[in-house]
Design a binder for these strands. Structure first.
Lengths: 250, 250
DNA sequence: GTCCACTGGTTCGCATAGCGGACCGAGAGA
DNA sequence: TCTCTCGGTCCGCTATGCGAACCAGTGGAC
């Protein structure tokens, strides 16, 4: 259905460029003005986007948020994970993230904040490459060799100078993660941020999500990473068993 | 654009009924099977929904989450609000909610959890009627009389036995809220939960969002509500001035 | 084993939905 | 005043997507 595809493209373009006008949209999408205009009208009528009062520019509507937030409830993931996340967060005093794999990325769907004044701030919906985040690596390590190869074939771009970009080094790292049961990320996503993560694998099968503890380098000391890793691993397993039986997401 | 409208309906129906099959969808929507099937295929191709591996049932995809989460960033609302929310949460030790008005409801878009073991749990994306939540009442009190009349004309259904359903009582309550600068909700949403809220009004104009403190009745004691109300009011004002200039949402 | 009531998925001719180039009025600079 | 761009609209042609009918697989009930 062509019109649906274009409308979804328009919706996404609006979401990315937040308050944006008709002409700018047509330029970024390379579509005829009237097509975009029609899509906008339809999306607006359905409540997915809204027009700012004064400027006439478009932004995503609240309906999109409501529908999107259904993702984190999917398969009973959030209710199963939140209590564990809170316990974990309270225990270690750092921020706990719940991320879900999506294609070549992981997406942050739930968060329990550290009570500490300094913390790594990542908004819900934030994304990261599979090879460049602790959550991503934890997920990647739980996939088959073929899938890992396919991922690597897609290219390993560097996010920070610490990001792993060498295929062999990544494969070695993934082997280590499989053995240990958790992944460590030292400033590979963001300078000064260290995190440990473990995949959530119902029935030891495909990873449907992952849990991580992240905090500033100054508090995430090297000698703490292994005990923290053990803790996330156990937490991720606890979530996996707490999941409803038919929770085979994806 | 008919096909787009139906596709969006399908998307929404999938989101609401989470893992749902084709036939069930056609029944809930009252649309021909092939139409729904085509919509599903298109939505899936665009990554907005996914099919569970075994059951063949559909659920919303991560892309929907990513696009939807753009709402809370809109107009710089979340970045402006989060620090204040954290300070407020740390100060009073209760859960702080940021909600955005949408039609006849308010929608929860951001949350800072109470560190206490007992807390009111509301998932992001949760909604509440304008007359039956503290956030909703705070927003309602900042609207014009005409808008309030229009809202009341739409009906005031009871959520709990404590919900205000009498138009005159609601109007009186709204006057009180306007004077005090904050709204109180005593178990009108949920039994045992008390909350205080204040609207976020850039330039003292239309409310674009609202902030609330909520907790169990046992901790939200009557003598605390006024000081807490003062605190949310100040916090909401702080957010309003922290907002970027052109943040006229909606 | 044999139904039957389900499921998800596909086909195809017809009408209509929607594509998109051209056009319009309104502001905003120059 | 002229001009550039803005958001928005028109309208004829045609591709698009509608939907009744049709498959094929599945799992109880008897």
């Amino acid at each position: 259905m062509r019109s649906v595809t274009t409308a979804l493209q328009v919706l996404e373009a609006v979401a990315v460029n937040q308050p944006i006008g008709l002409s700018a949209l047509t330029r970024t999408l390379g579509l005829p003005k009237s097509t975009v205009q029609r899509s906008l009208a339809t999306l607006a009528e359905a409540g997915w986007i809204e027009q700012q009062a004064g400027s006439g520019r478009w932004q995503v509507g609240v309906r999109a948020f409501v529908v999107g937030s259904a993702v984190s409830a999917r398969g009973g993931l959030r209710p199963a994970a939140l209590p564990t996340m809170r316990d974990l967060g309270a225990e270690v005093g750092e921020t706990v993230h719940l991320m879900v794999p999506a294609g070549r990325e992981v997406v942050l769907v739930e968060r329990v904040d550290s009570p500490q004044p300094v913390r790594a701030v990542a908004p819900l919906g934030a994304r990261g490459a599979l090879h460049a985040t602790s959550n991503g690596k934890a997920v990647l390590a739980a996939l088959s060799h073929e899938e890992v190869d396919a991922y690597i074939a897609g290219g390993l771009h560097a996010v920070t100078p610490h990001t792993i970009t060498d295929p062999d080094r990544l494969r070695a790292e993934l082997r280590g993660i499989s053995e240990a049961g958790f992944a460590i990320c030292r400033e590979e996503v963001e300078e000064g941020v260290v995190s440990v993560a473990a995949a959530i694998r119902p029935g030891r099968g495909r990873p449907i999500a992952s849990l991580s503890i992240s905090g500033p380098k100054g508090r995430m000391l090297p000698e703490l990473l292994t005990p923290y890793g053990e803790k996330v691993r156990l937490a991720a397993e606890a979530v996996a068993v707490a999941l409803p039986v038919n929770a085979d997401v994806s």
